[in-house]
Simulated scan of single mutants.
Amino acid sequence: MAKLDELKKNLKRGHVYRRDELTQWSNAIDRHLNTLVNDGTLQKLSQGVYYYPKETVFGNTPPEDDTLVRKFLKDDRFLLTSPNSYNSLGVGTTQLYNKRIVYNHKRHGTFMLGNRKFDFQMKPHFPAKATPEFLLVDLVNNLDKLAEDKQAILNNVLNKVQQMDQVKLKRSVNSYGNIKAKKFFKPALQLSDN
């Protein structure tokens, strides 16, 4: 029991851990993790990923999405976004989606982390944070996946282009736009064919 107590003593509330991080305090990590999950100390979020819940007056809080994704990927290079972010652009998208998208360099597919679903998409390029210019390009990239009036949205996007920083938008289109998006933005931004 001494090793289990040592493991418990080194856990910090609100932290997400990978199994291999915890082996330094345990001589029987799998047995100890099972014990801690069964007694409610830890929550198993995914294969080899555990959470020590932070307690509030309202009960246990879930881990922050970015903390969870960082541990799952073992990488800081990702962009966590959602189709709901498009609603901030003012181009007529109003739907709410229960979907989290993770642009990253390592994983592809849909994964349940805890009780939340994440859609991991491998991309060669994405910004450190979702700027309005990136979101506009990403909206056009993903328009076919949205439950919106596509033509109305595209018309609104063309109007929005005129209000945005043209240099930043051109850079976003060139860096993050798929072929269809580049073709769509080309007349509005006078893009070259490179």
Rank of each mutant, 00 (worst) to 15 (best):
M1H: 06
M1A: 05
D5G: 01
E6S: 07
E6N: 14
K9R: 05
L11N: 03
K12W: 14
G14P: 10
G14H: 10
H15K: 02
V16T: 01
Y17V: 08
R19A: 12
R19E: 05
D20L: 14
D20I: 05
E21M: 10
E21I: 11
E21L: 12
L22A: 07
W25C: 11
W25M: 14
S26F: 08
S26T: 03
N27W: 01
R31M: 05
L33W: 14
L33K: 04
L36C: 03
D39R: 15
G40K: 00
T41Y: 13
L42F: 09
Q43E: 04
Q43D: 06
L45D: 05
S46A: 15
S46E: 11
Q47W: 12
Q47P: 07
Q47Y: 14
G48N: 13
V49F: 09
Y52I: 06
P53I: 07
P53W: 10
K54T: 06
K54L: 13
E55K: 13
E55A: 07
G59R: 09
E64A: 02
D66I: 07
D66C: 14
T67M: 12
L68Q: 11
V69S: 07
V69H: 10
V69F: 09
R70Q: 01
K71F: 15
F72R: 14
K74M: 10
D75V: 00
D76P: 06
R77I: 02
R77S: 05
F78D: 00
T81P: 02
S82F: 13
P83D: 11
N84W: 03
N84Y: 07
S85W: 15
S85R: 08
S85K: 10
N87M: 04
S88K: 09
L89I: 10
G92K: 03
Y97N: 15
Y97H: 14
N98E: 05
R100I: 06
R100E: 09
I101Q: 04
Y103H: 11
Y103M: 12
R107P: 04
R107L: 12
H108W: 13
H108A: 13
T110N: 12
F111Y: 04
M112E: 06
L113W: 04
N115V: 08
K117I: 09
K117R: 08
F120M: 05
Q121F: 13
K123D: 03
P124N: 02
F126L: 09
P127T: 12
A128W: 15
A128S: 15
T131L: 13
L135G: 03
L135K: 02
L136I: 00
V137G: 03
D138S: 06
D138V: 04
V140E: 01
N141C: 00
N142C: 02
L143R: 00
K145Y: 13
A147Q: 04
E148D: 04
E148N: 06
D149S: 09
D149R: 15
K150I: 10
K150D: 02
K150A: 04
Q151C: 08
A152L: 14
I153Q: 00
N155H: 00
N155W: 00
N155C: 00
L158P: 04
L158E: 11
N159I: 00
Q162G: 04
Q163P: 07
M164A: 06
K168W: 10
R171W: 15
V173F: 01
Y176E: 00
Y176A: 02
G177M: 12
G177V: 09
N178R: 03
K180F: 11
K180N: 09
K180W: 13
A181K: 00
K182S: 11
K182V: 10
K183G: 01
K183S: 10
K183D: 08
F184D: 04
L189R: 01
N194G: 09
